[in-house]
Design a protein around this nucleic acid. Structure first.
Lengths: 212, 212
DNA sequence: ATCTCATCGCAATGAACTTTGCGTTACGCC
DNA sequence: GGCGTAACGCAAAGTTCATTGCGATGAGAT
């Protein structure tokens, strides 16, 4: 009764607290509405923050989205260590595929496709994925120490190949990733890992990736 | 003198002629301005057609872009036939990488990333890429007939793996594709092609891809 | 050649997205 | 605990993007 809300000004949240609220809200909206239907207006409302704050802080929607996705998906896809290279690669690939098919994972992969809107952002994305995937080279390096993998095998190339296959499904094929994919692709690669390039020491062919 | 342009109505172009003009204009704008800076307004002006025609015919920018790119890039990346699987795969991969790094190729790959905007369009994109890449399975099939490749090797998996690696560079790594990439990844795969999965006939693991 | 209809040019309208000035206040620094 | 500053809420204004009704006309059919 007499519900005369004085329309009082909302208490301002700012700094780290605001950032956390917004990033969580962004993730929530992405999983609920889909990556293509989230805007500053949605996220601001969800976070209980004013829209203009998002404009001033992140400038554009993609920047906010990328910020949220990269920060909230840090612990995903761990690097297994079972003692077997084959097993480790299968687990890694299968887990990558699993994550890639979650709403957030799909959104992350599709939304981080490099566009030239922001030069710095574009480079940050490449950096992000290179680090993420390259972490798995540890599997190969351990394999080399156990003599399961030939010394001259390009570890970076291997993990990028596995990652590329999973990403391809998400970005361009748009279908469910078959359960057997990890097992099959690793089976395809294993002989090449044992032998090394062209079956013999092959000078030339530089390191993993010319990480520019 | 007396340059009183009566502001007469522009002669309307329509049908197939309009479509051709617009598609060419779109390709031109993409190569000149970059995929992220083309809109209906640009393309309409370039084509000498009214903007509303584009809205009515294609409804959204992505649809027009995809239409233009898919129709204007049909003959790219031929399937080589040198008599050697290794050579064929190297040529195919290298040519795919070359095309992927042209302005139109990069635009095609980046812009055909599946988004859930239109369910039918999303499926069409998957179809497009599956057909494009699967065409290269011919290389493997010929290899099987020549006994260069084991019968139980999954040809589809091989080409998707190669394609995925190239696409990954364009979509997420954002760096120049190393010249040696094709040679190196094919060298990695060759032993697995000769032996087949896990070195012995392995029932289970279904066909190429469950082309849904 | 004429008729018919879908397509197109054009402009006005409307919706969504961005920017910006100003008052307020949370937060870090003494 | 008190101060100064930068960050925030808010609303208005600006800009771009997308839709739609109407008259006109190209293109195929008769």
């Amino acid at each position: 009764m007499a519900g005369q809300k004085p329309e009082q000004r909302r208490v301002a949240v700012r700094g780290a607290k605001l950032r956390a609220l917004v990033l969580d809200a962004a993730i929530r909206r992405i999983t609920e509405a889909g990556i293509d239907h989230v805007g500053f207006a949605d996220i601001a409302a969800e976070a209980g923050v004013h829209e203009s704050s998002l404009y001033r802080r992140w400038r554009t929607v993609p920047r906010l989205i990328v910020d949220a996705l990269t920060e909230r998906t840090a612990g995903e896809v761990p690097i297994p260590d079972t003692g077997s290279v084959r097993k480790d690669l299968e687990l890694f690939t299968a887990d990558l595929a699993r994550f890639a098919q979650t709403p957030v994972g799909t959104a992350l992969i599709r939304f981080t496709v490099v566009t030239d809107d922001d030069p710095d952002i574009a480079q940050a994305r490449g950096q992000f994925w290179r680090q993420r995937l390259m972490a798995a080279t540890e599997i190969l390096e351990r394999g080399k120490r156990r003599a399961e993998v030939a010394e001259d095998v390009d570890s970076g190339l291997v993990v990028l190949t596995l990652g590329g296959l999973v990403h391809l499904h998400i970005t361009h094929l748009g279908t469910t990733i078959p359960d057997t994919l990890a097992e099959r692709v690793v089976a395809l690669l294993m002989p090449g890992l044992a032998e090394g390039p062209s079956g013999r020491t092959h000078t030339g062919a530089r390191s993993a990736e010319d990480g520019r």
